[in-house]
Amino acid sequence: MHKTDLASAGAFMAVAAIFMIGAWRFGISSRTSDGVPGAGFFPFIIGLIVLGLNSAQVVLWLKGKGEGKPSFALADEQRDNPRALFVTIAALVGLLVLWRLIFFEAAALLFCLAMNHFYGRGKLFNLVFSLLLVGLIHLFFARFLYIQFTL
């Protein structure tokens, strides 16, 4: 049991409901003469199962009075981790945005330099590692496999 079980069950139920509404429109019981159920039949049934399983999850959560393992609790020594996580996610978003603006290799190089700097790696190591990683990616993917990173 996790403390977040109610929230996660709610999210799964919302997804299931969206699929079920869509499935309803495609036709659930619209059988043709050969017995084929409609296009919405399978997603509706699966959506129903997901809904049912999450209802059981909600019941278990309520029976446990919301007690359980906290999903995002951290010890004192881990207090900087959320920041590291958000910086990593933000840097990845930055990489994806930069990729559209400049070419991939430059964006990847900036990502590596920024992340290594954030993680406190030495300047020389940072430069050598970033150039080596991006250089190898360029050689292998762009030169050897002819994958064009241009968007």
């Binding site: 299931a16 499935a23 919405g40 997603p43 699966i46 997901v50 059981a56 999850q57 278990l60």
Partner: peptide
């Protein structure tokens, strides 16, 4: 229960795209 929720949600997501029998676009 969580394993089943995870698995069935994966199945639900697999229904996105062309319907395998009637070739209809879904989701």
């Amino acid at each position: 229960l969580k394993g089943l929720i995870s698995g069935f949600t994966g199945i639900l997501l697999s229904t996105v795209g062309i319907d395998p029998m009637l070739a209809m676009k879904r989701f």
